[in-house]
């Protein structure tokens, strides 16, 4: 099956200083790399999980897909086509890719009613003679909310309800892909399950593909088919979710899994595996970016950037000393 979304060697940089300031302050490279050498493919109807801590570039990557952030090099292909240049080129892509943002309430325009919010996509992309009231009812029904929610304002919604409205908006134009940035952030545990079940049900019914961005490993384990772990803009490990959880190959993946607290007082962790924190993008470590925190770092890690090497079953890992032995190095 040809991929719905394909990303090839993507690089996204941000300018941190204007050309004049850079010259004056003696900054050689006035750019920061937020995303570096990222490649992956997303099959129609499947779920891809993107996991990383803040500053890993996961949200930037997602925003670049819908053209909210300019791409430096590499390609983002949606259904085999590349969108370059301006907003008009992205207009068609934005019909087929819907995005949900982190804050369930804050991502809804505060002065609009629910009805206006969920029918907004039709107003933007042309309503083609649709009855907006009927559409609003249909969408509310799809996300399991009663029709009388149409008159409410965002601040009158609970987190879970607001998140459902976010899903309804995303569904409005019958997209093929939904990008969800932390879909369960800020929600209570009991509500998290409801939202994830809703997403899974909609995927089954509508054949949607999801790109889910999260730091919540416990959640992504249950909902994604494939997974990529990001660290400082790079995919350090990617592959089938089950493989990664059962047998993490990258020390960072291992550390992330170990950092998840277990809801069991008898299995408290004696020590913390990953110390310190993600370095600033402005001070990207030489060699492997993770070597400053890596418990397995060797001399080579400090100087040489590891290339992705292939493990079993299409799994890739960028590490000189992975926890699972590689088969071969790509390129």
């Amino acid at each position: 099956m040809s991929p719905l979304l394909e990303i090839r060697d993507l690089r996204i940089r941000f300018r941190v200083a204007g050309p004049i300031r850079a010259r004056l302050k003696g900054i050689d490279d006035p750019f920061l790399d937020a995303v570096l050498g990222v490649s992956f493919a997303l099959k129609p109807g499947s779920t891809f999980g993107l996991v990383g801590e803040s500053g890993s570039g996961k949200s930037t990557l997602a925003r670049a897909i819908v053209g909210l952030v300019p791409v430096h090099s590499g390609a983002i292909l949606f259904e085999g086509e590349e969108a370059k240049g301006g907003d008009s080129d992205f207009a068609t892509r934005r019909r087929h890719i819907a995005m949900m943002f982190q804050d369930p309430v804050g991502s809804l325009s505060p002065r609009l009613t629910v009805r206006a919010l969920i029918t907004e996509p039709f107003l933007i992309h042309g309503k083609d003679g649709r009855d907006l009231d009927a559409e609003a009812r249909r969408l509310l029904d799809m996300v399991g909310l009663p029709a009388n929610f149409a008159g409410r304002y965002p601040h009158e919604l609970s987190g879970g309800q607001a998140r459902r409205i976010g899903v309804a908006r995303a569904l409005a134009l019958a997209p093929k892909l939904i990008i969800a940035d932390e879909p369960t952030a800020g929600l209570d545990v009991s509500v998290q399950g409801e939202i994830l079940n809703l997403l899974v049900r909609l995927q089954r019914e509508l054949g949607l593909a999801y790109l889910i961005i999260t730091h919540n490993l416990a959640v992504i384990r249950h909902v994604s088919d494939e997974l990529a772990i990001m660290y400082m803009g790079r995919f350090v490990e990617q592959g089938a979710t089950r493989d990664i959880f059962e047998n993490p190959a990258h020390p960072y993946t291992h550390g992330l899994l170990a950092a998840q607290p277990l809801p069991d007082p008898d299995r408290r962790r004696a020590n913390v595996e990953l110390q310190g924190e993600v370095p600033s993008l402005a001070r990207r470590p030489k060699g492997c970016e993770f070597h400053t925190r890596c418990p397995r770092a060797i001399a080579r890690c400090r100087v040489e950037i590891p290339l992705p090497s292939r493990l079993d079953a299409g799994r890739l890992v960028r590490c000189h000393a992975p926890l699972v032995a590689p088969i071969a190095s790509t390129d």
């Binding site: 545990v189 009991s190 509500v191 998290q192 399950g193 409801e194 994830l196 079940n197 899974v200 416990a218 959640v219 384990r221 249950h222 909902v223 979710t241 089950r242 959880f245 998840q260 607290p261 277990l262 809801p263 069991d264």
Partner: peptide
């Protein structure tokens, strides 16, 4: 409900 407590991978998560 806590997904971290589910030993087996499941697409259908428990809710209240």
């Amino acid at each position: 409900c806590d997904p971290a407590r589910l030993a087996k991978v499941s697409r259908e998560l428990p809710t209240i």
